[in-house]
Amino acid sequence: MRFFSLLREALSTAWANKVPTALVVLLVGIMCATTLATVGRTAAAEQQVADRLDAAGSRLLVVTDTRGGDLINPAVVDQTRALSVTERAVGVAIPVDVVNQVVGAGGTRVPAWSVDGDLSEVLTVTAGRWPGPGEALVSADAQLALGMDDPVGAVELASTTQVGDYSVVGAFEAREPFGQYAAGLVIAAEPDAVSDSLYVVVTDSAVAAAAQSAVIGLVDPPEFDSVSIESPVALAELQAEVAADLGTFGRTLLLGVLGAGALLVAIVVLADVLVRRKDLGRRRALGATRGTIVAMVITRTLLPALLGAGIGTAAGLWAADRFAAIPPWQFTTGTAILAVLAAIISAVLPAIYAATRDPVRVLRTP
Rank of each mutant, 00 (worst) to 15 (best):
G164L: 07
T332Y: 05
T333S: 12
E173T: 07
G40M: 07
Q239C: 06
G134R: 00
R81N: 03
V85G: 00
I187Y: 02
G132T: 10
W15P: 00
E223V: 09
W130T: 11
F3V: 13
R300V: 03
V125R: 07
N73I: 05
V275Q: 10
G217S: 09
L280M: 06
A288D: 08
V19S: 08
A347I: 09
D70K: 03
A136W: 01
S120A: 14
P359Q: 04
V49T: 13
R276Y: 08
I216C: 06
A105F: 13
R276W: 04
W113R: 02
A355E: 01
D97P: 02
W329E: 15
P151W: 01
I298H: 01
G128W: 01
T332R: 07
K18M: 06
A82I: 03
L246D: 04
G104F: 06
A288R: 02
W113E: 03
F331T: 12
L7N: 07
L7W: 14
L23I: 10
L6H: 13
G40E: 09
R41F: 05
L338H: 09
V25Y: 06
L280Y: 00
G250V: 10
A140R: 00
V115N: 02
P366H: 10
P328M: 08
R129C: 01
A189M: 00
A140Y: 00
A309K: 12
L274E: 04
A183H: 03
S58V: 08
